[in-house]
């Protein structure tokens, strides 16, 4: 890799815990202004990658750079906002005092900034940290990750424990970060949580990066389930053989089908009739990823056969 502008860059990054594989041969570059979704089931190596990038653990082999520096350099860590996957907050200290401590060590944040974020996420900072609920701990974690406007945000399972409204607010915060040209690496075990804000997603499985995909391209290729209800029965022939159309079911006045890629031919065919009601499910990117997974698994099973 010669691209020196990448915010996160790894080459052959490998981590073994004794004999147990944590991560093997990760080569990845995340560009400035990009939101990168890092996906995989629990135990796949997401947290290992993230902890390597933050110098919590040390690689067995390979190299990496974060914001153009070695993660061992403490100065670079002031420019990163980090949310641990399992954020532990304990004791009688008030959440606000803890946030102030973190802000001080990172070089200071205006008091207004913490309040503003607390308001957005509806977090109560006057509570002792040991008494915070899981969701509120996660909010405190998000506030500390965002409060110093870091150039790079590394968020490990950021949406876990958040209720849907707060999740939406969080996603809005991520979009704002991208708008200002800053970079986000966020992990999740569910694609649906990250697909709306991610530019690219990488899938890690059993310690290996098995795919990196552009989300827009993925959506273009995605499969949609579509349903039309008309005011009168329609002939099957009107829809049969349309490009990209599969699983066609015509029952009286209703038509159900699956469509790959652009829905345009289907829309034009339906326009000949009077549509009463229409349902188009969100493209299921998860399904596409599951094929990657199962391919990898098959490959794996084969190798061990």
């Amino acid at each position: 890799m010669t691209d020196m502008t990448a915010v996160v860059e790894t080459e052959g990054l490998t981590k073994f815990y004794g004999k147990r594989r944590g991560l093997e041969d990760l080569t990845l570059a995340i560009q400035p202004g990009e939101v990168f979704g890092y996906l995989g089931p629990n135990g796949a190596g997401k947290t290992t990658t993230i902890r390597l990038l933050l110098d919590v653990i040390r690689p067995t082999s390979g190299r990496m750079s974060v914001l153009g520096a070695d993660p061992r350099d403490p100065k670079v860590r002031a420019r990163i906002g980090y949310l641990p996957g399992e954020l532990e907050l304990e004791g009688k200290e008030k959440a606000r005092d803890y946030l102030t401590f973190l802000a001080d060590v990172r070089g200071g944040v205006s008091r207004g900034r913490i309040d503003e974020l607390a308001e957005r996420l509806e977090a109560d900072l006057s509570v002792a940290m040991g008494k915070l609920s899981k969701g509120n701990k996660q909010k405190v974690g998000l506030i500390q990750a965002f409060m110093h406007d870091p150039e790079l945000l590394i968020l490990d399972e950021p949406t876990s424990g958040l209720d849907p409204l707060v999740q939406q607010e969080f996603l809005a915060m991520v979009r704002e970060v991208r708008t200002t040209g800053r970079t986000v690496l966020m992990s999740s075990h569910v694609l649906a949580e990250v697909e709306h804000v991610s530019d690219r997603v990488g899938i890690v499985r059993a310690g290996r990066l098995v795919a990196v995909e552009d989300v827009a391209a993925l959506r273009e290729r995605a499969v949609r389930k579509v349903e039309f209800h008309f005011d009168a029965p329609v002939p099957r022939e009107a829809f049969e053989g349309l490009p990209g159309l599969r699983d066609l079911v015509v029952e009286g006045a209703s038509v159900r089908c699956t469509i790959d890629g652009r829905p345009d031919p289907l829309i034009k065919a339906a326009a000949k009739f009077t549509t009463v009601h229409m349902v188009s499910a969100e493209p299921d990117l998860e399904e596409i990823f599951l094929t990657y997974y199962s391919d990898e698994e098959r490959h794996h099973a084969h190798a061990h056969a």
């Binding site: 933050l54 919590v56 403490p74 100065k75 860590r77 973190l102 990172r106």
Partner: peptide, 10 residues
């Protein structure tokens, strides 16, 4: 687990 965040400070 509380040391992890401290460790990622500058």
């Amino acid at each position: 687990g509380t040391l992890e965040l401290t460790l990622t400070l500058p």
